[in-house]
Design a protein around this nucleic acid. Sequence first.
DNA 1: ATGACAATCAGAGATTGA
Length: 259
Amino acid sequence: MKIATFNINGIKARARALLKWLEAAQPDIVLLQEIKSVDEAFPGAMFEAMGYVVETHGQKSFNGVAILSKLPLEEVTRGLPGDDTDDQARWIEATVINKTAIRICGLYLPNGNPVPGPKYDYKLAWMDRLQYRARVLLAEEEPVLIAGDYNIIPQAEDAARPDAWREDALFRLESRTAFRKILNLGFTDAFRVLNFGPGHYSFWDYQAGAWDRNDGIRIDHFLLSPQCADLMTDCQIDAELRGGERPSDHVPIWVELDA
DNA sequence: ATGACAATCAGAGATTGA
């Protein structure tokens, strides 16, 4: 089973490019972030025509996550637990059953800039809630996959110019510590199991020719529970999409699971 | 230190992003 995550930076602007990539990459499940659309305006029919079921958790103008799946989805839930006053659409969960049941979580973690400030406070508070949710899911001792745009550069090798990010909300120690706390529960950063060294990125800024200079950062991740990590057979980034026409500033990353 | 680029909503330019 091939599961992908892709921050598409606006479904309205990216629907055609997404369709083209789906046809080429043939993922069974796709987690989307930054759909920047309310549920009613999401162009679900074009994906349903390809055999996907569509579950959205949208919001006007900003944020918004969705799941496309060729397998039936069960127990779909929306919103990250832990704060009833948080109305930002950044979290969606579903269970998919093929050979084995997997709990799939799609996330769009807050950016957090500028630092310091309320946006950074929100990021850290959101990561606390994420850690708690991850802990609850892990306790089930079943395959769990938490993937999406984490807005976290895990290590220096995950940025072309780490010094430029040193005090940024994506890379400063406090942010990386919060991310590592989740890993330390027992989750695996899928990409780093199978890929080594610098130069592997999932985001390139639109500005200053970042793509042409490969001035990128790796901020889109798959975190796998032990039971899920044992099923993984491959994990890759489809970087070439960034060189296409009117691309998102992120590219897809995917895992292959024997599940 | 600043801005560069893009999407959205709206119908200009502010807001957001990373």
